[in-house]
């Protein structure tokens, strides 16, 4: 008879479509056959993953339709192992999966839409941002200060207008016939304000500045980098705005 580890290994492999020859002798086959009994678990495991993905990616589902979404979610469930007992963490890799999913190759904006939805989900559950801690720094050497982004703030850049696409696919929002998927990309700050998640479009300079700060670059160098790429960027106004809004915090 198999050990517990062997039995569980065979069971898990069979759930995702690998041969079940090893498993059948271990399963009681009576009034209801062993394959019929096992099928209940196969259905529920994949079903749980699909349900978890649907909860996080409603816009992706709307864009591709329920049937295709279920097909993609099932493929993800079979290919991408869940590494946590907390099902809420399972969808983290869905955007990367969609980027190489054959059926979705023509929808180049889909992975970034998924990235945006995952960012919204993460920010919604992130720790509450502490109040900004830059008071009393009047005499500090500002150029050398290093900051970090709180978990309740997330930066996202896309060559696609995913912000507008997301807005147009919210419940009750009427589709805009003038919307053009090729109308250019967006830089976004996804942040929580109180309990609500807000999407704030950024100008490129502000995105470059915040990305550099998030990576631990000293303030002086981060400003220089943003200005090198965008000489017209009003760095003073952006710094003031994001310091006061608590977008970045002193490390």
């Amino acid at each position: 008879m198999p050990s517990l580890l062997e039995l569980q290994t065979d069971f898990a492999a069979a759930l995702f479509g690998r041969p079940r020859g090893n498993l059948w002798p271990s399963v009681v086959d009576d009034r209801v056959s062993a394959p019929e009994r096992f099928a209940v678990y196969q259905g529920s495991v994949v079903g749980n993953y699909c349900k978890a993905l649907r909860a996080v990616y409603p816009v992706v589902e709307r864009l591709v339709g329920e049937r295709f979404f279920a097909h993609a979610a099932k493929a993800y469930a079979c290919q991408v192992p869940s590494l946590h007992g907390d099902l809420n963490r399972y969808g983290a890799g869905f955007a990367a999966f969609l980027a190489s999913f054959p059926g979705a190759a023509e929808l180049a904006y889909l992975p970034d839409t998924a990235r945006l939805e995952w960012a919204i989900e993460s920010v919604f559950h992130a720790s509450d941002a502490p109040p900004h801690n830059v008071e009393g720094l009047a005499n500090a050497d500002w150029a050398q200060l290093r900051f970090r982004l709180p978990r309740s703030c997330h930066l996202l850049a896309s060559p696609w207008p995913v912000h507008r696409l997301w807005q147009l696919n919210q419940p009750g929002v009427e589709w805009d016939e003038a919307f053009d998927i090729d109308s250019g990309g967006v830089y976004l700050l996804v942040r929580r304000s109180g309990f609500e998640v807000e999407l704030e479009p950024l100008e490129e300079g502000a995105y470059l500045l915040l990305t550099a700060l998030a990576a631990g670059t000293a303030l002086g160098e981060a400003c220089e980098r943003a200005l090198a790429d965008r000489p017209d960027f009003d760095v003073g106004a952006a710094l003031q705005r994001h310091l006061l809004a608590g977008t970045f915090l002193l490390r």
């Binding site: 898990a12 678990y41 529920s44 495991v45 993953y49 192992p81 869940s82 946590h84 007992g85």
Partner: peptide
């Protein structure tokens, strides 16, 4: 089992 969760 073996680090893979089945969440059921």
């Amino acid at each position: 089992v073996g680090g893979r969760h089945l969440n059921e």
